[in-house]
Design a protein around this nucleic acid. Sequence first.
DNA 1: CTGTAGGCAATTAGCCGACAA
DNA 2: TTGTCGGCTAATTGCCTACAG
Lengths: 544, 544
Amino acid sequence: MINVMHSMDRPLNQLEKSLDPQLWHACAGGMAQIPPLNSQVYYFPQGHAEHSNNSNINFNKLPQISPIIPCKVSSIKYLADSETDEVYAKIRLVPLRPNECDSDDENGFSGLDKTGDKEKSNSFAKTLTQSDANNGGGFSVPRYCAETIFPRLDYSADPPVQTILVRDVHGEVWKFRHIYRGTPRRHLLTTGWSNFVNSKKLVAGDSIVFLRAENGDLCIGLRRAKLGIGPSGYFSGLSGGSGKNGDCFESVVEAASLAVSGQAFEAVYYPRASAPEFVVRASAVRAAMRVRWCSGIRFKMAFETEDSSRISWFMGTISSVQVDDPIRWPNSPWRILEVLWDEPDLLQNVKRVNPWLVELVSNIPTIHLSPFAPPRKRQRQQYSDFPVGPQLPMPTLISNNPLSPSSPLCCFPSDNTVFSGVQGARHAELVLSSSNLRFNNLPTGLLRPFDFKPLGYAGPLPQIGISNLFESCSNLKKVNNESKAPVFVLFGQPILTEKQISESCSDGSGSAVIQNCFPEGSSDEEFPRCGDRCKGLENELRTV
Amino acid sequence: MINVMHSMDRPLNQLEKSLDPQLWHACAGGMAQIPPLNSQVYYFPQGHAEHSNNSNINFNKLPQISPIIPCKVSSIKYLADSETDEVYAKIRLVPLRPNECDSDDENGFSGLDKTGDKEKSNSFAKTLTQSDANNGGGFSVPRYCAETIFPRLDYSADPPVQTILVRDVHGEVWKFRHIYRGTPRRHLLTTGWSNFVNSKKLVAGDSIVFLRAENGDLCIGLRRAKLGIGPSGYFSGLSGGSGKNGDCFESVVEAASLAVSGQAFEAVYYPRASAPEFVVRASAVRAAMRVRWCSGIRFKMAFETEDSSRISWFMGTISSVQVDDPIRWPNSPWRILEVLWDEPDLLQNVKRVNPWLVELVSNIPTIHLSPFAPPRKRQRQQYSDFPVGPQLPMPTLISNNPLSPSSPLCCFPSDNTVFSGVQGARHAELVLSSSNLRFNNLPTGLLRPFDFKPLGYAGPLPQIGISNLFESCSNLKKVNNESKAPVFVLFGQPILTEKQISESCSDGSGSAVIQNCFPEGSSDEEFPRCGDRCKGLENELRTV
DNA sequence: CTGTAGGCAATTAGCCGACAA
DNA sequence: TTGTCGGCTAATTGCCTACAG
């Protein structure tokens, strides 16, 4: 058996050769979102640094880096690492001037997604078992894959067997013997498989992706197993750069510098780096910033399973809204949401998330838990008596909120709006129980969340602790008696009521102030400055 | 079992293939109102922008966009997203010239309603439970659905079982095993269901819709539970626009530009976007504008429950009538009504509504008032205490009121006209009790209100705050002693009495002034300018 | 020794009635 | 009436050993 490939023989320029976007997306997994060409995005240097695994980048030498820089996508290259076969993208961004920002277009996105969908249905990923990865072993092909992705097998033969040719991300062609045999019958790859495993240095836990391209060709890609969850020490840089991910320190600083000075720059994005994307569609960010985030809000967030076989939604509650790193990145919305998960064990390392990655959750109506409307019988009565009984469906809160043209972009004053939803939510929620999350034939995989920020990272908690806060918010227990009134924070800056100001209720830390949505007796009128601040911030986001 | 579907094989052009309007409406839910072909409508660019999730659209570059543009519906395409199956419509509109506007026709609308009615009886929606959505599980078919929608089952068999074929929005056919078994007996979908759930990526909380088409075919559609504020997860941004909803920025601006210049244009409308429709039957708007809206008026408004299983009416009181965004959209009636709900908790995010979406409440003696519905009791009391109880019977506003061509289109001064009737009506209000509104036997769903304007949006409140104002109106508490008299506002401009003018009671903000319909001793004669303003506006509405 | 074969059994998918809400 | 649970059966596939080249 000949070793068909070997990257060393390839000319260097092939490194820049784009591969089939379909195959790229199949390898990247369902969560990867590459904004379409010419679309407007926000570039987050903070996220870029995080992605490049270089959290200690010193941006101080650069003057005034805005944490969120509007850009236009001027080119996208879908690439694969010449050694590891891992896919990555080079995205060229042109910073937008303030006056260009409004010419926002979203074109092409659906097109991209359509592509995404296509792959989805045309590709199949399997995590290699010991047997699959064993030297000398074959590959057990899951029935679904064999029947939907592979060329049709002639089952009348005995045994049914065929040779399949697959193309990898570099265009190299591999040959496998596909046979259907054994009792019970099963699909196997035999001859050729061992060679592939050795050549690609695959180990149990890595995944391979089969894709049937539009032209009918069978393609194969792979995803290296990530030892993922946990601080980044694990990653022993397979993927060439300075860390495991895309750009090295210089690249990030350089990109940020160019961005700041309005010049085009290029960013390398590794979709499987388990870090949130740092180039995000502008409309997604804007939409997220329009939401009145507030502690207590229930949400769900999509994660990809460790083996990328599927995507699951996890539910949680926002515990506070505060700027992640107010010193280095003041006013940055990056990871501004601090969250508590319903299943904390599974997502221990995900402490902070980006608002544009979460979705608000609707509360599944439960009538039985209504405080004064127990069972259904009664309820009917109530309905006929009173059309809007309290046990009534809660309004969907934030989710589909229409955007009032001048709505504050990121104003987080507290009000009862959210609270009501929370109350309703505690009655019963749409919870993706783990029974929902059973994966194809794999043991419940570890999740590959976006976020691996070390636990200790979040700033010190204010005196009004999260737990207290949340208790009072959700009304689970008695309203806490804390003498200090809750403080509002807007992008790291506390927003105080007059009363609070007069009381000089300061805990000395701007960033540590937690927003609370239930200040007693608070109302919109009590936060006159909030509107102004919001306006400013909105402008910033729109025009910077 | 063969996997019947697989979207990959569909040609791209099918994206534009209209689907059965019946199925479309069943998926769209009870609130969706598509104006009939060739009918006269008003197009609200403001609402279009809101719907498209793009509140920051800068319309300033366009010269003079009228907030309300009369059009004729020249074509309607009922479509479904190729990926998510979510339904949307493409409505082609031809702006009408002033002289064409009066040739208003209402034809076809009853026809549409008939259609709507038909679906209603032929379709059934169920929100998926955990068990329904669980991998490996089946689907519990509510008896009503099985008996009225599904093909007749032969109950003489043991167990009664059949295979049903259902067509989805793309025309793909799915096969399910329908069985009636268990103790107690119940209808279930077993074989094939899991495949469907996985293929459509359904999760608990999503709903599916079964429809028996006129030709007897069984159809299946779905409604994503997604409250998508933004493109987070899986299906992010699927619907091809900015954010989840229809048109992108350019589309909105382009549509508005075309509209202004009198050219035909197309708008994409997502019925499940929880934003008010921005293409509204002209007659509805006209009728609504003929009403003398005034703070204190009692009304009801329909909302769809979160799971779309039913529609509920919520009652409220108009707290003020003022232009939503007088800077960007001067004189726009869009969301001109600021309201207070009887159940503020449930509709906290609905602060402003469109006049054509509310109905005035007529009062009819109701005996079955809930003995334990506190809010309501209080209301009745308070209203009966106050002779000019605003809860008075208004003529049914929107729907069928005759159009008197010369009636004031949008004059909102208060006068006794409204109040005189109120007195008689104080006994009780006509409440459409939910027993009227119960559909199918579904659990009460969450509401999906139209409006989620952030609370902070309304400009700074004047010294006469809403609460005070309303208190004085409704006499909930002592009449407030505020020395300043209430101020009237018409389309963002304060209208002052002579006394007020002489007192120079100005708070510096035109748009923030709140209208009050209970100025002591006020009468029509005191607002001589109002009529003139209205006339001008009326003309604008009729001829622009 | 390498690699392919069948067989067994662990695991998962998924159908069922019971039961309770 | 119907959502969920545990039990059961069927289907899938990981891994073992045999044995052929």
